[in-house]
């Protein structure tokens, strides 16, 4: 494992703001850190970037525990963080990219070549000689990503890297992350955009109130969307699911567990999708929600209230019909 953190606890003014039992990053993977603002994403990233030392817990890089100040300095040569509102040093964009190279003793022609390459990767060559302070927020983010890439880290951490980007630059940025992942980097980005997280990561970790839990992909299917606009059917196994989207080609669709209507038989409605199936599992969680696993060809996770469960008289093995509107199906 390239980078891992165990039993991390971080206290701020006597309050525990982060408690992560275990998180690991392997080379060639993209992890998305999702969660609302203030859930501890930035703190966790700073700890993983060796910029803050957690109150408790251990960090391991390349199988070796990082303990001392010297260890942390060495670790920062391997792990680089791009902050959400990155700070650019006074001077040109190019001089900003040079900073990290100089700390590694890389100068002259080699440095210039690497800077040019990094700027090309992010497609901001035209900003090279611009005063860093005169950039827009979106340009600053791109310059900061280039500045992180130019030092060739093995772990790249990014805090909301596309928060100031328009749609086109956002996709370009994530494509770059996908490229560097394929080159063997471990990438981890924080985002409160679930769509970005689903679309661009191999794995999602959700943070809430400083606590981490893996996101179990519920009702996610890889599909091939036919060309055309508006409502169209896609195939998931033998099932045909109607979606509304203007995109086409390979995509991921998600059917939110809360958006299903469960009935004992088919009924006329506006819902474009009606899937007959059979209940495989019923479980009730601590918050009093009932989760059904329904086998309708593919399996669907469906959430209903305990009252509905009781009124419909459902049990494992009951035949049900799941209805869901085409517009409720999310496409990533």
């Amino acid at each position: 494992m390239l980078l891992s953190a165990r039993h991390i606890e971080h206290h701020y003014r006597g309050r525990c703001v982060l408690a992560v039992d275990e998180i690991e990053f392997a080379p060639g993977t993209i992890t998305a850190l999702v969660g609302p603002n203030g859930s501890g994403k930035s703190t966790l990233l700073r700890i993983l970037g060796f910029l803050e030392t957690p109150t408790r817990g251990t960090l391991t890089l390349d199988g070796k525990q990082v303990r001392t100040r010297a260890d942390r300095l060495a670790a920062r040569r391997t792990v680089t963080l791009v902050e959400q509102q990155p700070f650019l040093f006074g001077g040109t964009v190019k001089s900003n990219l040079m900073f990290g190279l100089r700390t590694r003793g890389c100068r002259g022609r080699e440095a210039t070549t690497r800077v040019t390459e990094a700027l090309q990767t992010i497609e901001i060559e035209e900003l090279a000689e611009r005063d860093a302070r005169s950039l827009s927020d979106g340009e600053k983010q791109k310059a900061a990503v280039a500045r992180a890439l130019v030092v060739q880290p093995r772990v790249l951490l990014l805090d909301e890297p596309a928060s100031a980007a328009d749609r086109a630059s956002k996709n370009r940025l994530y494509r770059v992350l996908d490229d560097v992942r394929q080159a063997g980097l471990a990438v981890c980005f924080a985002s409160h955009h679930l769509e970005d997280a689903y679309r661009w990561s191999d794995r999602m970790v959700s943070l809430e109130g400083g606590r981490a839990s893996p996101v179990t992909p519920e009702n996610l299917f890889r599909v091939d969307i036919p060309p055309g606009t508006g409502a169209k059917p896609v195939r998931v196994g033998d099932l045909e699911i109607h979606v509304v989207t203007d995109t086409s080609g390979p995509a991921t669709i998600a059917l939110p567990p809360d958006d299903f209507i469960v009935s004992k038989s088919a009924f006329p409605s506006s819902a474009r999708n009606q899937f007959p199936g059979r209940i495989k599992r019923i479980s009730e969680d601590t918050r009093g929600r009932v989760t059904l696993t329904v086998d309708a060809g593919p399996e669907f996770i469906v959430r209903i209230t305990p009252d509905s469960l009781a009124e419909l008289g459902l049990s494992v093995g009951s035949a049900v019909v799941l209805s869901v509107k085409a517009v409720a199906v999310r496409v990533f």
Partner: peptide
């Protein structure tokens, strides 16, 4: 000086002196 100056210098691999130099420059 913005606390990000220090963090930025550090995450780009700067040691003790270079980090302080970056702060002094700002």
């Amino acid at each position: 000086i913005d606390p990000r100056v220090r963090r930025t210098a550090m995450t780009l691999g700067a040691g003790f002196w270079t980090t302080h130099w970056a702060v002094a420059r700002e």
